[in-house]
Structures are given as structure tokens and as C-alpha cells.
């Protein structure tokens, strides 16, 4: 089996993790799903050719270490420490979120035909999978009340952006990718501290409580 044949199953697995992110209500499962998505993304820069330059291997390792290990560890540590209510009802239910995600997939497939992308730049399914991942992240950020879920949505959106950059990583943008990874890492670190403070001040990580003014 050649390497390129594995790319499409990988992209479909990514789309499925997006669907799972949208229908899951438990924060613990969400963290595991975003870890799985990070692990899938770590393989994305390897395609389409099978030869492996050193800087690309470095990028894959860094992506795996940060997205599949460090982020989930930080998030689950925050989840453990704040001891929050595991179920905060979202603005948009699971079924509607899934429908919105499928709408995002349809839109990205339509957009792929409309955008003047240089032929051969994106492997098949990469563009729709990346754009659907960004949409999933946006849906999670907009429709969830749980601050931790919103961080996961932000990570999913960043995963989509990373996937867009993956085909370019062979052309020397690897250091740019690495610096973005570092930025996101710091971002998640800061968000973990922020969520801790939110939990201490409001006694919950339900962002709806920000609307109730207190003295």
C-alpha cells in the first residue's frame, strides 16, 4: 500500500473527530478527542511523498508532542484542579451542532470549487477537512458556555489552520509553523490560568455568569 492511499482515510478520520467534538458534552471526552485530532495532524505534513527531510520529521514530532500530549495534559490538569460542573448545557444542542458541522463540510466542499487554488497544492480532501475543522472550532467557541470547551474549540480552529499550512511545510515554512505552535502553547497555558481564576471568582466556568453583574 502506498503512503498517499493512507491520506484520505486520515482526513475522513479527522472529519469524524470533528463530528464527535460537536456531539460530545463531557469535557473529559472532548480533551481526549482533541488529543486524537492532534495525533492525526502530526501525520499530515508527511504526505504526499514518502521521503522525510529532517526538518519535517522535527515538525511532526513537535506537533505530536504539543498537540497530542502537552495540550491534553494541560487541559485535563486544569479540569482536575478546578473540579468544575462536568455538564454545562450549551446554547446549541448536540444534534443542531452536528447539523451545523455537516453544513460546514458542505460549505467547504462548495468553496473548494470556487477558490482559485493552484492545482496540486492541496491533496484531495485536505481543503474541506481543514476548513471543516476551523468551522468546528468556531461552532464550539460560539455555542458553548463552558470556558474549557471554548479553549478546545480554539484549539480545533488552530488545528484546521495548521492543516492548511501542512502542504507548504515542505517549502521551508517549517520554522513559521513551529513558532505558531509555540504561540498556541503559551496561549493554552495562559488560558489554563485564566480558567482557574474564572472558576475562583465565579465559582463555575460557565461564561454565562459573566453577564450577571456583582458589586
Amino acid at each position: 500500500m502506498n503512503v498517499a492511499a493512507l491520506f484520505e482515510p486520515l482526513m475522513i478520520a479527522l472529519i469524524l473527530t470533528n463530528l464527535a467534538l460537536l456531539v460530545t458534552s463531557r469535557t473529559g471526552v472532548l480533551i481526549r478527542l482533541i488529543a486524537a485530532q492532534g495525533a492525526i495532524l502530526a501525520f499530515a505534513p508527511l504526505f504526499p511523498s514518502s521521503n522525510l527531510p529532517v526538518h519535517l520529521a522535527l515538525l511532526c514530532l513537535a506537533v505530536f508532542a504539543i498537540k497530542a500530549v502537552a495540550f491534553p495534559y494541560l487541559l485535563s490538569r486544569t479540569l482536575r484542579r478546578i473540579d468544575a460542573d462536568p455538564l454545562i448545557e450549551p446554547y446549541l444542542g448536540a444534534n443542531l451542532s452536528a447539523a451545523a458541522g455537516i453544513g460546514g463540510l458542505l460549505f467547504s466542499l462548495w468553496l473548494e470549487h470556487r477558490l482559485p487554488v493552484p492545482p496540486g497544492l492541496f491533496a484531495p480532501l485536505l481543503f474541506p477537512a481543514a476548513l471543516t475543522t476551523i468551522f468546528t472550532g468556531l461552532i464550539l467557541v460560539v455555542t458553548r458556555k463552558n470556558a474549557l470547551t471554548q479553549v478546545i474549540g480554539y484549539l480545533a480552529a488552530e488545528n484546521g489552520i495548521f492543516l492548511f499550512g501542512a502542504p507548504l511545510s515542505r517549502q521551508g515554512s517549517v520554522w513559521l509553523e513551529l513558532s505558531i505552535l509555540l504561540d498556541v502553547f503559551v496561549g493554552v497555558f495562559v488560558m489554563g490560568i485564566a480558567i482557574h481564576h474564572i472558576n475562583k471568582t465565579f465559582e463555575s466556568i460557565d461564561v454565562d455568569r459573566f453577564c450577571t453583574l456583582r458589586d
Partner: peptide, 12 residues
């Protein structure tokens, strides 16, 4: 609904 969503993604 999850079954429907899986089938819809496959159809699309």
C-alpha cells in the same frame, strides 16, 4: 442522529 450524521457525511 449520530447514525444519520455518519451516513450524511458518507453521502456528501
Amino acid at each position: 442522529a449520530l447514525a444519520c450524521a455518519c451516513a450524511t457525511i458518507a453521502l456528501i
